[in-house]
Design a protein around this nucleic acid. Sequence first.
DNA 1: TCTTGCACCTCACGTTGCGTGAGGACTTAC
DNA 2: GTAAGTCCTCACGCAACGTGAGGTGCAAGA
Lengths: 245, 245
Amino acid sequence: MTLPPWKVGELASRTGISVRALHHYDEIGLLTPSLRTPSGHRLYQQADVVRLQQIQSLRLMGIPLDEVKQLLDGAVMSPRELIDVHLARLHEQIALQNRLAERLQGLAAHLDTVEAASIDDLCHIIQVMTAMEKYFTTEQLEVLRERRTSVSDARLHEVRDSWNEIIPKVRDAMSRDVDPTSPEMQAIARRWKALVEEFTGGDPKIAQAVRTMYEHEGAQLKQKLGEVPTPEMFTYMSRAFAALT
Amino acid sequence: MTLPPWKVGELASRTGISVRALHHYDEIGLLTPSLRTPSGHRLYQQADVVRLQQIQSLRLMGIPLDEVKQLLDGAVMSPRELIDVHLARLHEQIALQNRLAERLQGLAAHLDTVEAASIDDLCHIIQVMTAMEKYFTTEQLEVLRERRTSVSDARLHEVRDSWNEIIPKVRDAMSRDVDPTSPEMQAIARRWKALVEEFTGGDPKIAQAVRTMYEHEGAQLKQKLGEVPTPEMFTYMSRAFAALT
DNA sequence: TCTTGCACCTCACGTTGCGTGAGGACTTAC
DNA sequence: GTAAGTCCTCACGCAACGTGAGGTGCAAGA
């Protein structure tokens, strides 16, 4: 009492796998029906259905078709290895996507503080963010994010304006060879230091990361942020800081 | 003083974007260099480089090329909407992959309790798992998983053997029209109940889910598990339970 | 000046897992 | 006998390029 074999449509409706998919499996040699009618219609027998169920199981686990094929035709890996490999792949992907989601959320949060950002602004923010991700650790970024949200929008503008005022002054002083210990520069050094401390929260590691970032990405950041200190300014200012009372 | 325009290779090495990608962007009209040499070599000017940076920024956020194109050529969405849409998509994907990872981990844990599982065994386990995921809530599955890991492998075999012994007895009793309250059936009912309680931990919701699962997936599960109770057996046994002292 | 070598060009196929017709043969029920 | 439904085999499409293949342009050394 052998059951009558199934035609594709029937098999498809019973398993929920599309006819096209079954054709595809046949094309790639993953599931070739063991019978055909004289006119060429596919006929699936019991054994084929079993194999299809196996395929479906492995596919549900996210295993690509060619690996499913290798596994079912004389196993290349043990099941345990297989799963480990896939878990590793999956965790990698998840980690990647989580990082992406974090970035997007940071971006969204940032956009909420600014009103009516253009695509251009958006790209600028992204570029600054990507630059920062290269130089700060995750915790440092977290600290900076919290600090930024705790500060008003108006204050952020003030800070930027301050830098745009101070940096040209320093550049000018350097070109005039002004002594960093002079009263003029001491005043500027105090303002500079206050701005840095407000931004870094007094964390010297963050301050160092900022310097490294400006050193490597200065040209890029200048276009996005306006005035940006050069490494020479940092060394010049450090002499001024040393002389601060 | 206009800077000399860049050729593809130069632009590629400076931006880290492959020459092929630049060609591709040209093909799809995303970034068409504004100049060409008479011989057809691409020449990228300042504006092109800016646009490329924008493209790169948006791509870093996982935005597909056609959307990048739409955004840069006369925005369809506001940046904020854009990000929200992508975050939603991303979270969906992450959730999907997390579920997959959970399944795979469950599978791995299960394989660790069995030694030398074949691909066939693997598929069986997967099918039972998928059937169970349809009928149990996540917490219930968690409970079942803990219970399973706390039980020895030998005990699992004993339990399966018990069912394979009890179910035929019940089927036989039903066909002989034995009174469920008879001493013979009362003894079986006590064994049945003990097995159910051991598996469900006494949770009636889990017991109900098991019944529903067997009702809908009986045929499938029978092939995987061996003997499986039918709905008629459950009603028959409930009469036996009612008479238990 | 010729050649060598490198950068550039344009096709065009491969990747993953099918969806979606197009155009034609077969089957089944009335 | 015919109409409707099912089946067949191509074959393109997708996303974002990678990877040659085969041919041209260009700067520099012999």
